[in-house]
């Protein structure tokens, strides 16, 4: 039988064959270790403990160089932080407000509606403090890299003390197994006991990387849980409706066939 479907399969197979034999010369991205994430899959949710620990890692480690400009403190309410906790976190930051009645700008403690305060006033200041490199904003990092969560996890645990002998390291760069080109300006940010977890979890490098990636995955797609919950309901509804439509179609066409 040569139905169009069979032909389609043949065509696709031909292309797939072509696809698996990539021509030489294309620089392949390094392998990234696949991890099991609480937020993957159809019913995935962000593990709340990991989120809290990840926030702690971000605030105590990453935040000294990386901004998180799209996240407001109030957003933490979506993942189980109480208004008092949010208030307490916000008040640890100072934001500029004003002008006041005298026309002066002034500093005040942050409110829940304020965003996380960036570590540097502007790009130039950030570069000046980081040997000319610009630490990127982390709000969308997980979506802004291919296979984002696994990539970032691999990057965080992927530092190697001694670069392979055939690699000539540039001044101020660090060797990383996962980073494209392997030379990264960021010093290894995480290590054993880099933080002391509030919930008593042992702060291994692996645990820290896992937690901060979970936190950043939430920061990049805060709608994820609502999206998946709604998606399951919508698809179930559509499958039922479509089955009914098929039955009606069969019924109506029965006098033609």
């Amino acid at each position: 039988m040569s139905t169009p479907m069979n032909k389609l399969l043949i065509a696709v197979a031909a292309v797939a064959f072509l696809g698996v034999a990539p021509p030489a010369g294309a620089a392949e991205a390094p392998e990234v270790p696949e991890q099991d994430w609480s937020f993957s899959g159809m019913f995935g949710t962000f593990e709340r403990g990991a989120l809290r620990r990840g926030l702690q890692v971000y605030r105590e480690v990453c935040a000294s160089c990386h901004s998180l400009s799209l996240i407001a403190f109030r957003n933490l309410g979506d993942v189980g932080f109480s208004p008092d906790e949010i208030q307490a976190i916000a008040e640890e930051y100072e934001v500029e407000d004003g002008p006041d009645d005298e026309g002066e700008m002034f500093m005040r403690p942050a409110k829940a509606s304020d965003r996380f305060v960036p570590p540097f006033a502007n790009e130039q200041a950030a570069r000046a403090s980081n040997n000319g490199a610009l630490p990127p904003d982390l709000s969308l990092m997980i979506k802004a890299r291919k296979n984002g969560a696994n990539y970032l996890y691999g990057l965080l645990i992927g530092y190697v003390e001694e670069a392979p002998e055939d690699v000539e390291m540039m001044e101020g760069m660090y060797y990383n197994k996962v980073f494209p080109g392997h030379q990264i300006a960021m010093a290894p940010p995480l290590f054993e006991e880099a933080v002391e977890y509030a919930d008593g979890t042992e702060a291994t490098l692996d645990q820290e990387a896992h937690d901060v990636v979970t936190f950043l995955a939430w920061a990049a797609q805060p709608e994820l849980e609502e999206r998946k919950r709604l998606g399951v309901k919508v698809l179930l509804f559509l499958i039922v409706l479509t089955a009914m439509l098929y039955a009606v179609k069969r019924k109506i066409w029965s006098d033609v066939h």
Binding site: V240, L241, L245
Partner: peptide, 26 residues
């Protein structure tokens, strides 16, 4: 092929029920 009402019978009521139920869900 006929879609006229006199073509009714057992099948016709089942079709009507199915059509109404599906339309409602839709």
């Amino acid at each position: 092929v006929s879609t006229s009402p006199e073509h009714s019978g057992e099948g016709e009521t089942r079709r009507d029920f199915l059509l109404i139920a599906t339309s409602t869900v839709g």
